[in-house]
């Protein structure tokens, strides 16, 4: 079981950046007025920040990192590890993390690499970066996390188009203090069809046909280069396996909702997240949402929610449960302590 603890790691700061272009789901022409109301109530997304063409996750994550450097007053040359978590890379190659090393003016002595994960990315990322820091002794590391998902959603697909927003985030992690963090990470590739972009990779190379929008069994219209999402399968996975694994993870560390400050969940879908919250018996006040204004921002959703909803609270010590779950299928949880996390206001570019 990928279940382990790491001590002596602290989050110094978190920053987030989103596109300034805002799209409202109340303007989605494929739905009637009552369907739009129903959609907003159910998935919980009113507006989303949508990137213009050719602006990428790298741009948003680097803007967030610049804001973070400024707010924390850190010497960027001291960063010796930088990990970029994204499923919307600039290029097939090279890796986005290496582009970020140059764009941010990080040292050439900084190791940099990508991890290709989505909704579970932040908890996985924290686990990898803290494990590496602990084993290498690297004192300062940068975790860049985010996605531009909207470019891969067809306007004619009601299951994806109104759900996703774009964002890039930056988290500065330092080897210091005596916090003890716990992680619990899972994967199930048998669920690969649940959330997928079928064409454009090596298995189905891009062809002219990949771009043709076709009517699908689920009644939606999309191309094979678009994101497909099997809502019911994802929903069932999220309200069964996810809370079950969180519960056993919490029991393992004698952790209870009443002694935790906040449960920051991947901002997947309001109905789904509320089902998980109720099952695990967390109070409403313990579970912050940014979903209504920013949509599902994939791997960025946890750090984005920390920045928009908890920036004041994170100035003092907090005990947090973090949980990311989705594409893969992949899911991961973290029980972490923080001391004073600097969260500059969200940036829009």
């Amino acid at each position: 079981m990928a279940n382990f603890s790491i001590s002596g790691i602290d989050i110094t700061g978190v920053a987030a950046c989103v596109p300034k272009n805002v799209v409202s789901n109340y303007d989605y022409e494929l739905l009637s007025e009552s369907e739009r109301r129903m959609l907003v109530k159910t998935i919980g997304v009113e507006t989303r920040h949508v990137a213009p063409k050719y602006t990428t996750t790298l741009d948003y994550a680097c803007a967030a990192a610049e804001r973070l450097f400024e707010a924390t007053n850190i010497d960027r040359s001291e960063i010796k590890l930088e990990i970029f978590i994204t499923q919307s890379r600039d290029y097939y190659l090279p890796s986005t993390a290496i582009l970020a090393q140059h764009k941010l003016g990080l040292s050439q002595d900084c190791m940099a690499f990508d991890i290709g994960l989505g909704c579970s990315g932040y908890t996985y990322g924290l686990s990898v970066i803290s494990s590496m820091m602990k084993s290498t002794g690297i004192k300062k590391a940068l975790l860049l996390v985010g996605d531009v998902s909207t470019v891969t959603c067809s306007y004619n697909d009601k299951s994806t188009y109104p759900l996703f927003g774009d964002a890039g985030t930056a988290t500065l992690v330092e080897l210091k203090g005596d916090n003890e963090w716990h992680f619990d990470l899972h994967s199930d590739g048998s669920g690969e069809e649940a959330i997928k972009i079928p064409h454009g990779g090596m298995r189905h190379l891009l062809t002219e046909d990949s771009l043709v929008e076709k009517k699908r069994e689920d009644g939606n219209t999309r191309a094979d280069l678009h994101l497909q999402l099997d809502g019911l399968t994802v929903f069932n996975f999220s309200i069964t396996k996810v809370p079950k694994s969180i519960r056993s993870f919490m029991e393992q560390y004698n952790s209870y909702p009443s002694e935790l400050d906040y449960f920051v969940m991947h901002q997947a879908n309001k109905l789904m997240n509320e089902s998980i919250r109720k099952k695990l018996k967390f109070e409403k006040e313990q579970v912050p949402y940014s979903l209504d204004r920013y949509g599902n921002t994939s791997s960025a959703s946890i750090p984005l929610t920390m920045v928009t909803e908890l920036n004041q609270e994170l100035k003092s010590p907090q005990k947090l449960l973090l949980s990311g779950f989705g594409v893969g299928l992949s899911w991961g949880h973290a029980l972490i302590q923080t001391n004073n996390v600097i969260c500059p206001p969200i940036l829009e570019i």
Binding site: S34, M38, T42
Partner: peptide
């Protein structure tokens, strides 16, 4: 039911799950 759609299906599954602790699949529904 008026405007029945995939959102309603999710609401029904979530309601049954939280109220009765029973998870229905899409096939069940």
């Amino acid at each position: 039911i008026e405007d029945w759609g995939s959102m309603h299906a999710l609401i029904v599954i979530a309601l049954i799950d939280t109220e009765y602790d029973i998870t229905l699949s899409g096939a069940d529904l």
